[in-house]
Amino acid sequence: MIEFKPATAADLPKIVAIYNETIPTHRATADLQPQTVAQKSAWLAAHNAHFPAWVIQNHHETVGWLTLSAYSDRAAYDQTAEISLYLDQAARGHHVGTAALAFVDHEAPAHGLTTVIARIFGHNQASRHLFQKFGYDHWGHLPAIATLPEGHADLEVYGKHFGI
């Protein structure tokens, strides 16, 4: 049974472990070096009732995390969030991402958000497909914007409006 629980400082070691697991694949993050709990503490603390963070649990085991982060500190973007979704390698391909985006469809408007954007590497076809399946439209293409060890990578921007 998949559940979403507000993330707390006690969840940071698992959040960081899941995040760090993705770094060597160069598919989900532009970070190139592992992060530490100390480095991610301020990031988690920046999430609040309007821009929340959750851990994703399956049968009471944390298998991922999900955030709706402030897109910008400028006031006109206060109803726009950037989504981040990271899953433990063992949880991928088991519909956890599908459950997460269904959860966001309900939660984004409940938190006063009207727009959610996702930044996804062009070569991450699984994530692009997942967001498209949930009605996120392709809003932008940034060619060769990231320099990864294997070469330059494109960034695709997807977005969805809620209630506007």
Rank of each mutant, 00 (worst) to 15 (best):
I2Y: 04
E3V: 03
F4C: 06
A10Y: 04
L12R: 02
K14D: 02
V16I: 09
V16S: 02
I18K: 00
N20Q: 07
N20M: 09
I23H: 11
R27F: 15
D31I: 01
D31Y: 02
D31L: 01
L32W: 06
Q33V: 10
P34E: 10
T36E: 06
Q39F: 06
W43I: 09
A46W: 06
H47K: 04
N48D: 15
N48G: 13
A53I: 04
W54F: 15
I56W: 01
Q57H: 08
N58G: 05
E61S: 12
T62S: 00
G64T: 00
S69Y: 06
A70T: 11
S72P: 03
S72N: 12
Y77M: 08
Y77E: 05
A81C: 06
Y86L: 02
Q89K: 12
A91V: 01
V96G: 00
T98K: 14
L101Y: 02
L101D: 03
A102N: 12
F103H: 09
P109H: 06
H111A: 11
T114H: 15
T114Q: 14
I120K: 01
G122A: 07
A126Y: 04
A126T: 09
R128I: 13
F131R: 03
Q132S: 15
K133V: 07
Y136I: 05
Y136V: 04
D137S: 15
H138M: 14
G140C: 07
L142V: 10
P143S: 11
A144Y: 11
A146G: 13
H152I: 06
G159Q: 01
I164C: 12
